[in-house]
Each structure stands twice: as C-alpha cells, then as structure tokens.
Design a protein around this nucleic acid. Structure first.
Lengths: 337, 337
DNA sequence: GTGAAAGCGCTAACAA
DNA sequence: TTGTTAGCGCTTTCAC
C-alpha cells in the first residue's frame, strides 16, 4: 500500500499536487500529471478512501440494511440494488439486523463514524427510527417498502393492495368462493392492512360475501400458518386460503402435508408477495418485481448522492409477478407512480 | 458526534489523557477518570473507530464475503457467524460477490484500506486468490467450505463425501436400485469430486453396480438439472435421482412437473446439501448444519483475532441434517475433526 | 499521572 | 501551476 507521501518522494512533486492529479484537478501541467500518473502506475497506488473520508466526510459506500438475510424478499431486492451500484464507484455493503434493536443501535453508532455515501434501510421494524437518524445525519437515503407520513423521504414500495387483490382474484378464477384469509396481527402494519383490504375488495368485486370468521389475524410466520391451518381444515367448506405472506402459506402447507392434503389438488393457497422462482411450485402468488424495486431504489439513491434536491418522491410498483399454475397466467410489466 | 478534542475542552484534561481513559489505561488517577467519564456520559461520546484504525491498523469489523446472497447455503452460514459475533465488539458486514471477479477485485482494493479485524471468504470461485491476498495482508481469516492444500489456513468445511453417501443411502433405503447421479462439470471441484465419490461408494456398499451412463456431469444450476431430467425420464428403469446440489434437483423437479410427474410419488430425488426447512418438502437431502458451520468459523476467527498463533486447523462437520419423508429419518448430531 | 508533539493518509485553504 | 500549512479524530512516544 503505497501512499501519497511515497509518491511525493519518488516524483519530487508535493503531496498536494499528487492529490490534485488523483482528483483530476485541472490545474496541473501535463508534464507533472504524466510524471505522477506514471509513478501511480508503478507503485500500484490506490488512494485511501478512509483517510479521504475523514476530510471530505464522504465514503463511497452504500449501506444496505436488511431485516433478515435469509428472507428471499430482502435478498432479491439487494441483488437489484447491487446490480445498479456495480456500474458506479459506490460499493454496496449489507448489514443484517435480524430485526434486533440492539444490533440496529450498534449499527447506528457505526454509521455515524463511517460517513456512508448513502443508505437503504429495509428492516421492517425499526426503520422509522433509523430513517430519522440517517436523515438527521443528512445522509442520502431511500426507504424500501416503508411509507412514512407526508413522505419526507424517498421511498420505493410495492403495491400491497394490488398484490392481495390479485392473489385473491386468482383464487376466485380457480373457482373458489369460500376463501379464508390469513392476516397480520391486531395492531396491523400498513402492509398488513393494505393486503387485507385487497382481499376484501377482491371478494366484494366478485360478489362474494365476506365471512369475518374466516379472516384470521396472526403473526406473519410459519407457526402461525401451521396453527391456523388446523382450524381451517376443520371447515370443509373452505376450499382456498389467501395468506398475507409466504411464511404463513408455507405453515399452512406444512400442516396440510401432515394430514395428507395436497395444495393445488385438495385446496388452493395463495400469498401476497413474490416468491423465489426456484421454490414456488404449489403456492399461487402475486407481487411486485423485487429486483426491480431494488434497482429503482438504487437509482433514486444515486440521484440523491449526486446532490439532487428535488422534493422526496415515492415510487409504487404495481404487481408484475403472478403465478397460478392452474391458469398459466403470465407476468405483466408496469410501474406506477 | 463529539470528539476527544471537545472532551478535552470541557474537562480541561489533555487529549492524551482522555484517550487513556477511553482505552482503560491504568495510569490515570481516579479523580480525572471520573471527570472524563462523566463528560463522556454527558456528551454521548463514542470513539471514532475509523480515526482509531488509521493508527492502530485495526477496525473492529469482520468482513463476510459470499458468492450469492440469494443462496440459502451462504445466508444460513452468515446467520451462524453473526450469532457468534453479536456477543463481541466485532461487527459483521456482508459483501456479495455474485461470483464476479471484477467485484472481488474492487472488494480487495477496499479491504486493503479498511483494516478489517477478520475476514471469512465463502465465495466458491475466487476464494483461493482472495485468501492469498488476505493472508499476505496478515489479516485473520477462516475459510468456509474451501479446503486448501497443506492447510495453510484455518478452515471449516462440510463433509461432502458423507453428505452424498448418506443421500444416496436414503434413496436406497427407499427401495431404489437404479439411481442416476447429477455431478459437477468435467473439471470437477473438490466438492463435486467428493460428492460423486460418496454416491459411488454408497452404491457399491449396498451391492448395486454403478452404471457410468447414468452419471451426468453438468453445471450446478437449475437449467442443467432441467436439461438432464429430459434424458433421465426417457429411461423408465431409473426410479431415483441423486443431485450434487439443490439447484440441480430443483431443475429436475421443474421438468418433471411439466410432464406431470410428482416427486416422492413417481420418483425420488435427493441432493447432497442442507436445504431450508421452509422449502424442502419433496426433496430428500443430507448435509451438515450450515448455521453451526458459521458459528464455528466465527469462533475460530475470534481466536485468531485475539492473537492465537496455533497452527491452522481444519474442522470438518459431518452430516447432521437428514430429511427423508418416507422414512421419517431424524437428525443426528456430531462434529468431526 | 499527565501533557505536548508527532503522525496515520489524505484534502483544503492559502500563498507564492 | 505548485508548494506550504493546517487539520480530520485518534494513538503513541517522550518528556515532565
């Protein structure tokens, strides 16, 4: 690791001029520029971005915070972000919070010292506080799947309402009328509320009365799906289930398997988010293109990092991923404001 | 963000002494220590690890390099690493190389400037070169699933031979005799070689002759599995398939679904690695505990970062995760040197 | 015990 | 066009 100091010694040019060359300052004669450039070549010199960041207050690194690295949802979005960033000088780095506040606090401490060029928080839980802090630190930020009041911040979100509306509609297309819904907890998040609403309206729009007793609020995890499945399968009139998210759907299928029931054969199940093309085989789904969401978030962030002072915008992605083996539905495309 | 300088101004104590207090130096009187500590409390001061790293040459951050963040294999291992590290002052940060050399090069440049406390490279492809560089930079490192010659480095690996031996044996237990094997490419990696060997020996140990014509070398991805499945299903005598990895198995299932065949019903398929408990339903598998591998890697790294100069060791994990719905096999436990 | 001074690698005035 | 100086926030001699 050679330094500016060494280059100075080799070339006989002052450190400042070396710095000028590195930073493409116009005020350097062609002669000295050549000289320095050659020395840089020879010594394999790379400027130390850390030392630089202490002065400039900017590190060319974008921090991506995910709630759970094992979750396809996050991982796929990260891929989109990285795709866009890989064409730039910014380096994406991922931090996995595991929805853990303590970890997020530690992260925040770190973030204050590293002067990240930008940050994309995707952790469902604490992101409001996180967002606040990053905003106060004046570091460019784009929220993903987190709509804040009055949209003070840039955000890219999926149309949750449309996802569940579509997922429910697919079930109806498949001939179902009595469709149970697995919703979020009592104190519903925005996403859970919107998804439930989509289910309700899809049912109504198709003239199917809503039976409140087969709308089940629960945690958004596998055990919840499993537990509720026990209830649901007692009611022989229910032929299909629409689950808030993939995990709940997986829980349902888990229980179904235990009692010898096959999805698509004995019942239909859908969820309101995109799932990995690798895994999804018996779960109907509708959702936005996660990678595209990531890409858009990165593009928005890029603009901000370049200094754009436009007022914050929220981009909503409509449903472009629909999977229903019974109708062989195809994917659509589209992006919505 | 208060600084040491501010603290000095507030307390009237010199910067050096403040530094001493922060670093728990014994040579500070109780009185001044109290004074400084109080000021730290009040100002909410946190030492800047970056500035510190410029002098000490150590940043309390552990770099985890994965080849593909979407891959359960990597993600699950990361979770293990993070679990161990979360009890320490080290902060794990993930970099996703996407098996891309260019990205890895960029990463290397960055790594030289950040003085990471430790690194865990898990990227299948370039990790040999990466390992070399990190080793030369004298930064503590633990390799995961990469066995290097003469074990110059610490490493934690899964017993690939045992995984495929077990996976194949499960298929045999299920009554199969004519079992196709989906192997790695011609220039096989160590892992592919060991897995193929496990298949061969399991077959032999059960007195089943090996038919070289149904051992298919290919890329380790979904399209390969899909393509080969076309061949395999032409041969009605083949009743089961053992795939090198999950992706190939998924590819097989994909084609099977298209021609109306059901895994577990019409054929059995197994793969030689652990899969997410969420997704695995119709694929038999045998593999090591990935999270445990991550935890062990982190523990090893922790020792090195504390300065241990023991000679490098390689820890091999035996198969503890076996899934076979037809026999309801249970998980075993164990760790092997 | 404590402080002054130097320096990590770099940039940013300010002179010249 | 170039060099000098100061300084980012911290640690580390080396005196006192």
């Amino acid at each position: 690791m050679s330094t500016i100091k060494e280059l100075s010694a080799i070339t006989g040019v002052s450190k400042s001029t070396i710095s000028r060359v590195i930073n493409n300052d116009a005020n350097v004669s062609e002669k000295t520029r050549r000289l320095v450039l050659d020395a840089i070549q020879e010594t394999n010199y790379t400027p130390n971005i850390i030392a630089r960041s202490m002065i400039t207050g900017k590190l060319p690194i974008v921090l991506i915070i995910v709630g759970d690295i094992l979750n396809y949802h996050f991982a796929k979005t990260v891929v989109g972000i990285e795709k866009v960033l890989s064409d730039t000088d910014y380096m994406p780095v991922v931090f996995n919070s595991m929805y853990n506040e303590e970890k997020e606090q530690k992260l925040l401490d770190m973030a204050k010292q590293f002067k990240f060029a930008g940050v994309i928080p995707m952790t469902a839980t604490g992101s409001s506080q996180l967002a606040r802090v990053f905003h106060d630190m004046d570091i460019p930020m784009v929220l993903v799947n987190k709509k804040m009041k009055r949209s003070e911040f840039d955000a890219v979100i999926a149309d949750e309402y449309e996802a569940s509306y579509t997922a429910t509609s697919e079930l109806i297309k498949n001939g179902h009328k009595r469709i149970a819904y697995l919703s979020g907890q009592n104190a519903k998040s925005r996403i859970s509320r919107e998804r439930e609403q989509g289910y309700r309206e899809a049912m109504e729009d198709h003239g199917i009365p809503i039976d409140e007793s087969i709308i089940y609020p629960a945690f958004l995890d596998i055990p919840s799906g499993y537990r509720i499945a026990k209830e649901i399968f007692k009611d022989k009139s229910i032929t299909a289930i629409c689950a808030n998210n993939y995990l709940m759907a997986a829980g349902v299928n888990q229980y179904a398997a235990e009692i010898g029931k096959q999805p698509l054969a004995d019942y239909d199940i859908a969820c309101c988010e995109s799932i990995s093309e690798i895994y999804a085989k018996d779960i109907i789904y509708a959702g936005s293109d996660l990678q595209q969401i990531g890409e858009t978030a990165a593009e928005l962030l890029l603009k901000r990092m370049k200094g754009s002072k436009e007022s914050p915008q929220t981009i909503t992605f409509s449903v472009t991923q629909v999977f229903n083996p019974k109708t062989a539905d195809n994917k659509k495309t589209g992006r919505k404001r």
